[in-house]
Design a protein around this nucleic acid. Structure first.
Lengths: 193, 193
DNA sequence: TCGAAGTCCGAATGATTGTTCGGTAAAGTG
DNA sequence: CACTTTACCGAACAATCATTCGGACTTCGA
């Protein structure tokens, strides 16, 4: 039941496989829905028996939080990095939104699952970390936007930007005409007028 | 099992109660999630026994499609109305977005349920009508936007607008500072530059 | 007022499904 | 090579929950 190996040689493999399970789960959950996906389906989709999943996770819900963590943590980290670079405000905002859109696009399945199960976030100790990450990221975005757009009410602009970027997960297709960078630039253009 | 009364005097009451059940279901589903809500909980939340729900719907999934219909149909109808009025392009767009935001805000629960269960839309005969309504509305919005914003690539602007407006359901609170009209105008300002 | 139609009850049911667990094979370690 | 840890299997279990259904009560229409 979800016990990380002691032996160093196995630990790496364990971690790698665990991450693969998370990604695959995100893919299946995104397509079929979290509740409508049975553990058996999920296991079958990665050529495992149902019991095997419990080597990597204590249960279905932990799998869900893992998906959210795998989504939010690298984003928050990279965003902090970008804003530390200290370019001029508009360049910072553009860099942040580019990073963000790229992340959404690369983690489309994670995003869709996250949005589907948004109602779980509203309460429950288990979700504290995810809630905190989301809030922290939104604060970074708010500050970057405020600096790049000093006049006017930034509040609605921020909400609009959040809407655009998050919504991107719903329509973006890899073979589409727009690159993630072009999308991000388009969004920033809208928001900066 | 979901048989509409023959007698005129009862038909009205039946329809009224059915609508109330739909709205209440939207509320509970939005808060707890569709799959995580049991029929017993749902019935209890409206002081009914579980069996009573099957007077109005043949099953849980029909309740879900009813929520989507109750959301999409009046919107599509009113939108068509607004665009038929034939003002100048920008006024048309503003009117449409106002209508749209108001609708989202008044049917917040419906919207949240709709978004949660978006993955069901992707396939299944049962969802054809809902899919068609959504597509029809998006087409209206696209045309209105195109007319009001003749130069530039309207494609990304449309997607951005869809994102903003739909996302509104996630943060809007009745006691907030922004009125639906102010929100709508803010969105249009962003999109028209 | 009478019979039919409608409304709702709520316990029982049948199917589904998350999770457990005893066992087997494989791989690391000394 | 022993032997311990790790990886995985997959049938069985226990719990949950959508749906059914026979009946009690109410309202309508004539």
């Amino acid at each position: 039941m979800s016990v990380r190996p002691t032996r160093p040689a196995l630990r790496e493999r364990y971690d790698r496989r665990q991450e693969r399970v998370i990604s695959q789960a995100a893919k299946v959950f995104a397509k079929r829905g979290y509740d409508q996906t049975t553990m058996q389906e999920l296991a079958a989709s990665m050529d495992l028996a149902t019991g095997a999943l419990y080597h990597y996770f204590s249960g279905k819900e932990e799998l869900l939080t893992a998906i959210c963590d795998q989504l939010m943590e690298p984003l928050l980290e990279q965003a902090t990095e970008v804003l530390r670079a200290g370019q001029d405000p508009e360049a910072q905002l553009r860099a942040l939104v580019r990073l963000w859109v790229c992340h959404v696009v690369e983690h489309r399945d994670h995003m869709l699952v996250f949005q589907q199960e948004r109602h779980l976030l509203e309460s429950g100790e288990r979700w504290r970390k995810v809630r905190a990450s989301r809030k922290a990221f939104e604060r970074l975005a708010a500050e970057a936007l405020e600096r790049a757009r000093p006049r006017g009410d930034g509040h609605l602009a921020l909400l609009a930007l959040l809407g655009m970027v998050n919504h991107t997960a719903q329509w973006y297709r890899p073979r589409g005409e727009l690159t993630p960078e072009a999308i991000a630039d388009g969004y920033v253009d809208l928001v900066l007028g």
